[in-house]
Write a protein that binds this DNA or RNA. Sequence first.
DNA 1: AAATAATTTGGACAACCGTCAAGACGGCTG
DNA 2: CAGCCGTCTTGACGGTTGTCCAAATTATTT
Lengths: 212, 212
Amino acid sequence: MARQATGAAQRVAVATESLRDEKFNARRVELAEAALETLGELGFARTSLREIAQNSAFTHGVFHYYFSDKLDLICCCVRHYKAKCVTRYDEVVTTAQSRDELTEGFLAKLAATLRDEARMHRLWYDLRSQAMFEPAFRKDVLEIDKSLEAMIWRIATRYAELGNKKPASSPAALYALFDGLFQSALLRHLANDEKAVPDLLDEVRRLLPTIC
Amino acid sequence: MARQATGAAQRVAVATESLRDEKFNARRVELAEAALETLGELGFARTSLREIAQNSAFTHGVFHYYFSDKLDLICCCVRHYKAKCVTRYDEVVTTAQSRDELTEGFLAKLAATLRDEARMHRLWYDLRSQAMFEPAFRKDVLEIDKSLEAMIWRIATRYAELGNKKPASSPAALYALFDGLFQSALLRHLANDEKAVPDLLDEVRRLLPTIC
DNA sequence: AAATAATTTGGACAACCGTCAAGACGGCTG
DNA sequence: CAGCCGTCTTGACGGTTGTCCAAATTATTT
């Protein structure tokens, strides 16, 4: 009976603790999202905790309460960014019924995200470069890279499937190609090159049939 | 006569001034090279002028004497890096007499630079990302990117030529592909992934014939 | 309602940053 | 030799950084 009682008490304790954890983590994500705003604007090198706090509804002390470290905060940001980013093309992939439909849906999303979320994308490239210097970033960055590779691969295999073919290259090469093109287009777009987006679309449109 | 005298004097003045300029610029390059050491070690975000000076034979004042600005210094570093980097494969391209020879020569250089000059390469990716935030970097970075694209294109056209073919894709796409592969391999290599280099070589070896 | 715990605040701290300027050094010219 | 000029050193400056902490506030439990 005593055992049962402590068992119940433990269960309650565990439940409240996990609830607390959940709330704690929700707050962390909230703060990370606010931090992403400033990080996307200034980049990793120029962003300080105080700047993040000033551009948000929080004080700089809160960030230190929820994150042990500046790196801890940014790692959380990266991880949260991943979750939103990786599913971008999934709807297009599952609903498209023809090669053309998939192509146009993919290109539309590609152009939209390049234009509208340029700041988030440049932050991703910034942090991926930082991972080459800062070991603390590497695990998360490599994981996200894998996820993005899988994302591109889903598009490619679906595209091939709709033409009764198979992709002609490896997932790694295909991701490298698209990532390289996107990175270059992003830089040009940020440098106010009007042709950056259309050039990217042309290139991808030409490339897709040759690869699958 | 007076005009001749002043003409001669001017010529001398111009000569000494250009000599001074040359010497001044040589010193700038010397300092930039020293700065590259620390930049390659720490990355842009964590590198300060004082740190650069401490890891070199110079005092931090000299850098301010030769460069108007921190950005000015780093721009000079980038430009100097470019000159050394762009000619890496030229010898292989001009001397190779067969596809195999070109392939092996290219792969050997690729593997060597990935291993031996990893710090310079990660700095390049760092600064290219910085260019997405800092307009002052953009001109130089875009210019270097163009040079690198041309470098890859020289390899591809020579490779195609040796097989009496023509490259099957655009210079931009080809550069994006190789750059993406190299960047990914670099990150894995820096994360102590033993298979990073051989995987890259395998991938490139497989890719070359399908592209040209 | 009282007490305990969790959260938030805002200021203090030392360390560091980029920049600058006053002066020292050494070679060259007049 | 005196004076100038380019080069370099050194230390100081205001401002910013990450971090920490004691107190205030809010939420939760007893």
